[in-house]
Design a protein around this nucleic acid. Structure first.
Lengths: 197, 197
DNA sequence: CAGCTTACTTACTAATTAGTAAGTAGTTTT
DNA sequence: AAAACTACTTACTAATTAGTAAGTAAGCTG
């Protein structure tokens, strides 16, 4: 019943495999719905091996959000994102959410942690706040430039519109989970309809 | 340290007290973050007393969502809601979310359960789908009439706009939890700005 | 007033949880 | 080649979890 090892298959180190699996479980089931046992069983190691890399679940959770924050900064600063015109930058953002949808309708990190927020360790809460703040600031800038250059259209402040749009996107993935992909597509279609000049 | 009993204080029966407390814990901490022990301790009864009223946590969760669905239908059909012009109906909806915000920044039922959705018992999932569907249909109708009578303004179909707005409101309460009340007010302000003709 | 029903408590079980301490095999450093 | 370090496993604990079974006191019912 073991998978035949493909030649020269790249297997990341255990620490990364733990993070990757924990991330999937977090986005598919929520932070309070997976345990070190679940991780260990699926990774083929003992629970204590996970404690070795992440002494407590708080540490694991914090590492998870911290990694996502690093990814956001890296993605945002990537030439193929940073050098795009605003409308294309917005499309690149939508593609990220669409990718979540395509991966078994995973919600986004924010949407996964917001409901359980008060049960999370303080460092994890802090990382999530930073994550959401930086993402919102980035989108506000994109929207501001987009409106100034005439490719995007909206009323109100870029900051308010950015907060509204990101909130809607996070929520749209949640609705997709509860129903199916349709409402997500409907909501994103509505966003495009309103925003694209 | 006990509260002095006011004269003729109305104390609901245990079943209702369980539901009320479970609802608070659900909206403040998430479904997988409270136990029968938590409920029992705070209610001053033994965990088995809760099992008497709700044999399993699945039963309790399902009862919780079912009650909320009954409340939605009752609220929607209330003369003081049903007889309002569309714009006022929309304001009445916003008042419900604002009330959540005022109660210790509780998220809404949908926002609380969406992330953990796959860990929920099937009957609870079904109830939540119905709840969300009926609320969306109600708002779509409100929006349709509002646009037809000139008091509300939006592009696209009423159904799409309703899905988008409700998703945004659910998400706005989550953002308020992660940060503070400000982003909720900002997002709702943006909604009003766009929607009110 | 006998018997049934309601609303519990007491006392328990089996499973699962996060977390720890000690040991060990293999690798790297000195 | 000795020492130290890395990445684990084995074996454990104490707490908590959902859930059950049996008992009981109070009230209602025929």
């Amino acid at each position: 019943m073991t998978t035949p090892t493909p030649i020269a298959a790249f297997v990341p180190d255990t620490r990364t495999r733990i993070l990757d699996l924990a991330e999937v479980l977090l986005l598919e089931r929520g932070f309070n719905a997976f345990s070190y046992q679940h991780l260990a069983k699926e990774l083929g190691v003992k629970p204590a091996a996970i404690h070795y890399h992440f002494p407590s679940k708080d540490d694991l959770g914090t590492a998870l959000v911290a990694r996502q924050l690093r990814r956001l900064r890296k993605w945002r600063d990537l030439p193929r994102v940073a050098d795009l015109p605003p409308q294309k930058q917005f499309e690149a953002l939508l593609a990220v959410y669409d990718n979540h949808l395509g991966h078994d309708r995973r919600v986004c990190l924010f949407g996964s942690l917001a409901a359980d927020f008060r049960t999370l360790p303080a460092p994890m809460q802090a990382e999530l706040r930073t994550f959401n703040r930086e993402l919102t600031e980035w989108l506000a800038q994109v929207l501001a430039v987009g409106r100034a250059t005439g490719s995007l259209r909206f009323v109100g402040s870029p900051a308010a519109k950015a907060a509204q749009v990101l909130t809607t996107l996070a929520g749209a993935l949640q609705v997709a989970r509860v129903h199916d992909e349709t409402p997500f597509q409907v909501i994103v279609g509505q966003l495009r309809l309103e925003l694209f000049a």
